[in-house]
Design a protein around this nucleic acid. Sequence first.
DNA 1: CGCTTCGTTGACGTCTATCAATTCATGTGG
DNA 2: CCACATGAATTGATAGACGTCAACGAAGCG
Lengths: 252, 252
Amino acid sequence: VGQFLRRLSLRSRLSAEEQQVILSLDGRTEKYRAHQDIVSPGELVDAACLVADGLVGRFDQMRDGQRQLTSFYIAGDMCDLHSVVAPRASWSITAISNATTIRVPHADLQEVARRYPTIAMAFWRDDTVDASILAKWVGNLGRKSSIARVAHLFCEMAMRSEAGGLGTRTSFEFHATQEQLADATGITTVHLNRTLQEIRRQNLLTFISGRVNVLDWDGLASVAEFDPSYLLFDAAAHRQPKRLGEPQMVVE
Amino acid sequence: VGQFLRRLSLRSRLSAEEQQVILSLDGRTEKYRAHQDIVSPGELVDAACLVADGLVGRFDQMRDGQRQLTSFYIAGDMCDLHSVVAPRASWSITAISNATTIRVPHADLQEVARRYPTIAMAFWRDDTVDASILAKWVGNLGRKSSIARVAHLFCEMAMRSEAGGLGTRTSFEFHATQEQLADATGITTVHLNRTLQEIRRQNLLTFISGRVNVLDWDGLASVAEFDPSYLLFDAAAHRQPKRLGEPQMVVE
DNA sequence: CGCTTCGTTGACGTCTATCAATTCATGTGG
DNA sequence: CCACATGAATTGATAGACGTCAACGAAGCG
């Protein structure tokens, strides 16, 4: 849970008391094997799923069985914080690698959000980051080549892993299979494999048994057209009731 | 602003007092012509943008100028409610058709959210719907054919227009050009045109000068693999502090 | 040591992009 | 009311990125 507090603190400023309240949250610990489903569509959930260890993903499944991964969650991420306000799942959550989760009851989270408006805003903000990542992926899937998509995914996971204290942007764990990467980037396994080969050929990175080593960060970011601002890491300027007032551009 | 209250009420139950508070919100009215940008990336905004009339979109732009529309907003939608917790835009907002907006100051929205936890949750929930739509689009773009994507977009706008009281699911306004539809579905204008022809050929709908008439809803939904649950319309069962307790499925 | 999962390769097919006109619709000014 | 400019829709021909199918090699595991 300390990891979760740290994650929230990346983007929201919390008082000592508020931090204590977050730390007091707890829940059932559960372990999953890779490929095991954690939440299925239609289910009514009563607890949010905090990733304590491993890699977890949210996905959508088509009629013919094809899958599209829509989000990855690493240790410290609350992977369905939004379920607090929308407990009827319209999504699936699965363990990408072996993973450990903590199920934090909605009742507790609601109680906390209700009592501490700043925490409620922090939750909301975290959810907004999720949405921002999704929006970026709509752009990637709609308008970029396969190599740019794959490179972008690596860039994103690199930055998130680094921010989460789980590695550096040039060396971090990413325990996904090629099939899962293909499901995330909207291409086939075969084509993903060839795309990875092309990325290797350009000496951008190595990806061996779940570990990524970026050899050329700038090159990778350039291929990906990666701009980290959508991850809202520098947003720490927020929070604190009335602190508006900088002049801002007005359009039209 | 009444429209906005109505939109929130689709998914959150608000008390009479809370409803009054929402209705008391207000802001500068602004008019835009089609194709005019409303918010640009990097901008620091201090007011959220409520769509009073017309069609508004959020998009991402690539290095080579290609655009990807990530969301459409119709009258009654607060198109960047998330900016309340993340005021530094990493996105662009543009007027798809001629549009009128009301800029509601963040300060007011924050004040309201801080004083009324239920309203804060309602805001958060609305933002979650946005994220849910984005997740669905990641799936559409990653794994569906062009015709399914286009059909899905029409289904979605149909349901949202109907829910917003702007028409019925078989007859509603949708003032976007083919180029904009192409930017939303991740294909080219040329291909979108041919896809529309195919949809017409299958007698699914007509789309003439901004008005959609669905001739075969079931057929359209089937081609699109459309399942409206992600729009969270039936989620009205929420809100009201402690009303948990139905038995729910537990995984694993 | 067989089984299963994951990664890799080759040949071939197709959906969608690209390029470049052309038609159609709308609106403006003379 | 016509001439013209402008944006939107449509069409044809061609190219390329990615999917499909099928097989094989490598690696972990009970």
